[in-house]
Design a protein around this nucleic acid. Sequence first.
DNA 1: ATTAGCACTCATTAAAGGAGAGTGCTAACA
DNA 2: TGTTAGCACTCTCCTTTAATGAGTGCTAAT
Lengths: 342, 342
Amino acid sequence: MAMDERKKKVLLAIVKDFIDTAEPVGSRTISKKYNLGVSPATIRNEMADLEAMGYIEQPHTSAGRIPSDAGYRYYVDSLMEKYPLSEAEKNYIRKRFSQKIREIRDVIDIGAELLSEMSSYTSLIMGPYYQEDRLKQVVLVPLSAEKILLVAISQSNNISNYVLDVPPSLTENDLDIISRVWNNRIKGLAPSEIGNDMLNEIYEELHVYRKVISNIALALFEGHEQPGGPVSLSGSLNIFNQPEFKDLGKIRDILELLESPMVIKDLLADTQPQGLTIKIGGENKLEGINQCSIVTATYNLDGQMKGHIGILGPTRMNYAKAATLVEIMAQQLALSLKKLLE
Amino acid sequence: MAMDERKKKVLLAIVKDFIDTAEPVGSRTISKKYNLGVSPATIRNEMADLEAMGYIEQPHTSAGRIPSDAGYRYYVDSLMEKYPLSEAEKNYIRKRFSQKIREIRDVIDIGAELLSEMSSYTSLIMGPYYQEDRLKQVVLVPLSAEKILLVAISQSNNISNYVLDVPPSLTENDLDIISRVWNNRIKGLAPSEIGNDMLNEIYEELHVYRKVISNIALALFEGHEQPGGPVSLSGSLNIFNQPEFKDLGKIRDILELLESPMVIKDLLADTQPQGLTIKIGGENKLEGINQCSIVTATYNLDGQMKGHIGILGPTRMNYAKAATLVEIMAQQLALSLKKLLE
DNA sequence: ATTAGCACTCATTAAAGGAGAGTGCTAACA
DNA sequence: TGTTAGCACTCTCCTTTAATGAGTGCTAAT
């Protein structure tokens, strides 16, 4: 069966109305609210066709139709119109990003908050990270007789702190020597490239304090192991507003998933490198959010660093608005972060 | 009316049974399950008295009785027996705390997780903080031509990082001088004690780079402004298990409160300096959790540092178990943190 | 002082009966 | 041949009614 113009119009009306009202849409409603110029009976015929094609379905005999996942997919791919952001909304975003921003955390927190606030859904943001972040410098600071502080600075000026145990015999001079040797070696290296070969070379060069040296290596290696950047989540309680989630169990399942940063990273990382990615309902493999949709985008910094951003809402979500918001926010994040980082 | 032995026994039975079953307790149940050696009719008389005294109440005419806030209060103050932790439970705690612990965050996260897991309620932990944390040392590291890294180390070895803008003319030698001057001044000082007087003295001494110096002061001052330590929250979704919270609105209200670290800090900080604090239902001023109870304790380190720990559950919570868990966990935290910090 | 007995209350559950929304189908119409 | 009015049919949702049962307070007997 073909998808003629009128069928498209009917499907569009059903999707729009259902997104709006969360109620199954009947033929009379469509005929009245969306003036297609035909009677409810005609619409009913079209609807029967659309159902046969798998784009809409009936919760029960005497109810209207609701879009199926495939229906939303068709809508998103072929029918959706661009949602324009009002000037007021744009200004609001700018205003919020002109607050004092001190570090990356601030940027992604503001972004996530804005995104959930303006969309009324849940927002997820992963902060920027180097595909492979490289080390720039380490600094060793004595803390007490048996402890030192290791500060690792990456090329992206990402700072990591580690407190290490050292033998009390270690002098400040020793520290200087150790840090100099390390700094000679590691500049421009990814933490994962710190291998045994390098360690052995350093042992050779210094002969002493093997333990200290290996502890430094370990700290650098482990500290950077976590893939991806920091994560910010906002508005997870917005699901309570969605009528399709009036069931305690469902809400709980979703909130439970969102408690895990790993899950969020997975959700976000599964994104195309360019443009928007929209996953609808069952297209999400993750059990528990197959009644949800996710709109994600990747933002890039200098081509080297990237991050992800997304909106999670019910399948019946305002895709147009979500898409626009994600797009704008990705741009804004790239902008703010670039400014912050250099 | 006086509180004779039998009344106490009846009240105890009601509290225990209601905590167990979440159902109003009838006279027949008490007579059968808790062998007081009297008939339901007698118990009914006692219950009428207890109701007159305000310790129990009836949801409706044909239901059993449930404890009132005052009833729980009496129970907690006078009737509650100590809940002994099994050897298995103790071992479990020890085992979890023998995991690799690298920093304070690890300790409070493990603690919070354990506490919510073992109690089936929500747990709140505030990490250790100095009443007034004092500075020990600052380190300045050049990052790029126009940026430096300021590392502030406190007496408790708390590390804070700040990236500051500096004029490109600033040399590494300048940095050494600036940090030396600062370190001479701040050792043992609380960040709040960095005043304009001190700033002026430093200006006098150095004459140049006023802007850099004041930025350092600002960073130190603002960075430490947040009162209290880091906060860890765990098991907030456990409310979904409580039959008294089968209402979406109530759950939402509570989760919303718990989203704010400030609220958690307030809840925890409102604690007696010694021993356990138990706040029951309406005793909590905070709107929204007046159907909840909180069991909190303060743990102390060296008499200088302290932190807070608590369990939040429904008014119908297992106070005995919660109290024991909070007590044990406070000890364990103090232990683990002491080991970690020195 | 305790207890058996009993009438009474009230939440909860199940069953029954509309009301209403929306459909599919048929037949008439342009 | 496509469109539409008309109508019987289905099924959810809401309200009403009735029955059940748990638990009480009171009275009178022990």
